[in-house]
Nucleic acid binder design. Structure first.
Lengths: 88, 88
DNA sequence: TCATCAATTAGACGGTCATCGAAATATCAA
DNA sequence: TTGATATTTCGATGACCGTCTAATTGATGA
C-alpha cells in the first residue's frame, strides 16, 4: 500500500458517519446502497459522496446490478491498512 | 475506549504531518519538542497545535522538564485503538 | 534584574469537507 | 413512451482545520 492510499484511508475513517457506514458494509457480506439509507439520516447525495470517498480510498467495491448498487468491503486492503498501523 | 476518544484518534491520524510526528514519537522512547522541530518544516506554533491534538486524543503523554517538554507514546491507548479497528 | 530561549496562546487566513436541494442520468415497469 | 425509482453530479453554504505571525508565559543563566 502506497502512502497516498494510506492517507486516503485515514481521512476516510476520520468522519464518524463515514466510519459507521463502513462498519455496516463490513458487517454484511454485501449490501445495497438504498438499504444503507434507511440506517442513516442523510440525503442520497451525501451517501453517494461518502461511498465515493470509500471507493477512492480503495476500501470498498461497488457492483451495479439493475437499478441498485451493491457494496462490499475489500478485506485485503483493510488488512493491509491495519498492518501498516501496526508498524507504528 | 469510548467512542469520543476513538474518533479523536481517527481525526488525529488523518493529517499526514501529524501522523509523521506520531511515528517519530513512537520510534524514540522519549523525545523533546525542540528535537522534533528539526525534523519538520513547521513553526513552533503549528507543532504545539499538533502535540495538543495528539494529547487530547490520549495518544501521547507530555512531561515538562525545565524549559523542555518531553513526549511519549501511550502504547496502551494505541493498542486499544488498533483492537477497535480490528473489530471491523 | 534582564536578556534569552522553549513553548503556548490568540487571532487571522485560506483551503478542505460534510451537507443539502435541485438537476441530471439510468433503469425498470406499465 | 411515460412515470417511477435509484443513484450521481452540480453548485452553494457553513463549519472545521492546518498554518502562520505576533504576543505571552515560563524558566534559565549572566
Amino acid at each position: 500500500m502506497d502512502e497516498k492510499q494510506f492517507h486516503q484511508i485515514s481521512k476516510a475513517l476520520a468522519d464518524p458517519r463515514r466510519f459507521e457506514i463502513l462498519k455496516r458494509i463490513a458487517a454484511e457480506d454485501e449490501i445495497a446502497c438504498s438499504d444503507m439509507r434507511c440506517h442513516f439520516p442523510i440525503s442520497a447525495a451525501t451517501m453517494s459522496h461518502h461511498l465515493k470517498e470509500l471507493t477512492n480510498a480503495g476500501l470498498i467495491d461497488l457492483r451495479k446490478e439493475a437499478k441498485f448498487v451493491h457494496m462490499k468491503l475489500r478485506r485485503k486492503v483493510w488488512k493491509e491498512y491495519l498492518s501498516q498501523l501496526n508498524k507504528l
